Amino acid sequence: MCWFFFLEYYSFAHCVAGGCASIATSSIFTPSERIKQQMQVGSHYRNCWLAMVEIISKGGFYSLYAGWGAVLCRNVPHSIVKFYVYERLKQVMSSLPSSVRPNTFQTLLCGGLAGSTAAFVTTPFDVIKTRLQTQIPGSVNQYHSVFHALCKIGNNEGVRGLYRGLTPRLIIYMSQGSLFFASYEFFKSLFSLEA
C-alpha cells in the first residue's frame, strides 16, 4: 500500500513539474510562435523584426501573445500526458521479467508512445492556436477566444476540423518523445540521478 502511494505521488510530481515547465516556456515562446506563424502565412515579411514590428503596430504589444490561452491549453496537458504515460509505461517495462530498468529500445518505445499519446490528446488545441495566431485582425470570421474557436470549428468542421494535421503531428511527437526520453534517461544515468 505504501509503495502504491509512493508511485502515485511520483507520477503526480512528474505531471506537476511538466505542467509548470510548460507554463514557463509558453510565456516566453508564444511571441516567437506568433511571429513564426505570421511569417508562414504572410509572404510580405522579409524578416522576423519586420513581422514583429507590424504585429505590434497593428495590435499593440499584447498582440504578440495572441493565442497564448490556446498555447497553454495545448502545452500544459501535452507535458502532463507525456510524462504520465512515459512513467507508467516505464513502470510496466520494469515489471517485465529480466528487466530491472528499461533498456534503450524500451525507452525509445515508451517515449514514442508517450509523445504520440500527448499529441493526439492536444491536437485540437494546436489547431485552435494556429487559427488564433494566423487570423487577420478585424476579419469577418474572427475567433474571439479559445472556447469560441473550439465551438466554431467543432460546429462548422466537426471533429475532423479539430484534428487537422494529426498524422504529421503524431509522427513528429512520436520521434520527439523517443529522442527526448532516451536523452533524458541517458543524462540521468550519466549524472547518477537514478533514485
Rank of each mutant, 00 (worst) to 15 (best):
K188C: 13
Q133Y: 00
F191E: 02
S116A: 12
M93P: 03
F83P: 04
Q91P: 02
L7T: 09
E8P: 10
I56W: 00
S175Y: 05
L190Q: 12
F61K: 12
S98H: 15
W49Q: 14
S63D: 14
T104L: 11
S116Q: 02
K188M: 12
Y45K: 05
A66C: 14
F29S: 12
Y84M: 04
C151S: 15
L50T: 11
Q133M: 06
T122G: 06
S22Y: 08
K129T: 10
T167R: 07
A70G: 01
Q135R: 08
A21V: 07
N141Q: 10
G69E: 07
F5D: 11
S178L: 00
F147H: 13
I28H: 05
G154H: 09
Q106L: 05
L108T: 02
C20Q: 08
F180A: 02
S116N: 03
F12T: 12
S11N: 14
P102T: 03
L50E: 14
L170K: 06
Y163K: 02
E33S: 14
H148D: 15
I28V: 13
I35R: 01
F181C: 00
R160W: 04
Y163A: 02
P168H: 06
R169Q: 10
I128L: 03
H78L: 12
S11G: 13
W68E: 06
F6K: 11
Q176W: 12
R88E: 04
L150M: 11
P137I: 03
T104F: 08
F181D: 01
L72R: 04
Y173H: 06
Q142P: 03
Y173C: 03
Y9S: 15
I55V: 08
F5T: 14
N103H: 07
K129H: 09
I35T: 06
A149T: 04
G112E: 00
C2I: 15
A70Q: 02
G177V: 00
G67T: 01
L190A: 13
S57Y: 03
S189K: 13
S43W: 11
A114C: 05
C73N: 06
T130F: 04
V121M: 08
A182N: 02
A13S: 12
G59K: 03
R88S: 08
K58F: 09
C48Y: 14
E8R: 15
L166M: 04
